[in-house]
Design a binder for these strands. Structure first.
Lengths: 248, 248
DNA sequence: CGGGAGGTTGAAATCACTCAATTAGAGTGG
DNA sequence: CCACTCTAATTGAGTGATTTCAACCTCCCG
């Protein structure tokens, strides 16, 4: 569909291509980054709160979340991450992790040494700016989630998350025709949305009964994007700061 | 108290000094940045959602907040900003504002052209990394607020905000002895905490009745830091990523 | 001293939570 | 192929936190 844009199978290049235009030299340099690949089962922490990592994580395959355990035992999930994301890029300039990173399904991740990333953006400063931009988009997504947690009720929030996941999956080619596989349990959705599992369940049922989505197994089918976006309080993907070509 | 560290009256240098160690050359370069100073009355937007600024804002005096108006009329405040903060630093690499910036009391701000900031960090790449770090701390604070909105009740959240404000004000020399002036109205606190004005009022009363703080006029006096921090769910300032010297 | 913004309080309604029990699927071993 | 088992999903009933709506109060400032 994007005829002039050559496909690239490197997930990081594909992902960065959704938020900035990359030159051939930049692609080549990214492709040359040394990676250490490793598999994780669901639930096994990749990084823990208070760790001081010397490397960044690049998700190759699977689904990750960032979270913190709160006094009282509740878990707050801050974000979900898709292949191509570098969920702990902030560790480049923030020594101590203030949250943890874990797969929600069995996942393959690649580690890239901080030293290699620094060398890369010192050689090609524009790559540094693109990485910086990636962390800023991260922050923009936090603002959007804060808005949901602070100002939207469970019904709106849930609709919003379903919209966001579709737009993000579509942008990296993992969803089309308003359908996608949703890998998280209702427990995990609740931890992200700030509601209990029980209430997630009731809320999803409401959305189903309203006829805007159907959710069977782990499969989401959006029947009316317009209605779902309206329920979300007017879903506006601006906060994802995708470059125009990549928008659905 | 920090004998070896020379005082500097430039608010940006003071603020950056709380999150990184600056060399003399870096201080000088920052001091040389061209500033355009302007005063704003409370409530007048400095930047609006959808704007595409070509400059960043540095707060010299007063108090700012970042916010968005949500479908339904509610306002979500994402952060409060103190002198020395650059609340829209993200506009350097995110063209479109996804939220607005406004003073909550009459404030003096300085504008710095994006071009000048870029020139600065191209000449001194470490300054770029410090600015990047500042935006990452911003994101860390969003995560902390998300945690509150998603996982803490109104009582804990309010205590948490009072703790955060003290630590931040203290770090730039605007508070001591566990007391400070709190410039925001209960309406604004509610918009930040995701609760109604009425409930802010009841919650503050609860804190007062518990004997941990007194709030008269715009003055906050924390009687028991330990208790307040405990109510907040164990306030831990790690997420502010202040450098050791600047911590209270 | 009058007006207005911000603060304070009460009562009823609502959203989401807790607790508890039940059902549905997916994998496993016999 | 069928029990068995585990995890995730589902539902009901009662409870609690927060909102809504409405009124009143208090201070500051012109």
């Amino acid at each position: 569909m994007t005829a002039g844009i050559p496909e690239d199978s490197h997930p990081l290049i594909r992902r960065l291509g959704t938020i900035a235009v990359l030159s051939d030299a930049e692609r080549a340099a990214i492709r040359a980054l040394p990676l250490t690949v490793r598999d994780y089962p669901a639930g096994a922490d990749i990084i823990r709160e208070r760790d001081r990592p010397a490397q960044c994580c690049l998700l190759l395959d699977g689904f990750l979340c960032r979270y913190r355990i709160v006094a009282g035992g509740r878990r707050q999930i801050f974000s979900f991450h898709l292949p191509g994301d570098m969920p702990d890029l902030q560790s480049l300039h923030l020594e101590v992790m203030d949250h943890a990173l874990a797969p929600i399904v069995p996942s393959t991740v690649a580690f890239i040494a901080h030293a290699d990333i620094r060398a890369l953006y010192r050689a090609l400063p524009r790559i540094g700016e693109i990485f910086w931009r990636a962390t800023l988009i991260d922050a923009a997504m936090f603002r959007e989630w804060m808005t949901g947690l602070g100002s939207r009720d469970a019904y709106q929030r849930t609709a919003h998350l379903l919209c966001e996941l579709y737009v993000r999956l579509e942008s990296i080619g993992l969803a089309r025709d308003f359908a996608y596989d949703i890998p998280m349990t209702q427990q995990e959705l609740g931890d992200a949305l700030g509601i209990t599992t029980v209430h997630v369940n009731r809320t999803l049922r409401q959305l189903r009964e309203a006829g805007v989505v159907s959710i069977r197994r782990a499969r989401v089918q959006i029947h009316s994007w317009a209605n779902l976006a309206a329920i979300a309080g007017g879903f506006d993907p601006t906060y994802l700061h995708l470059v125009p070509l990549a928008q659905p």
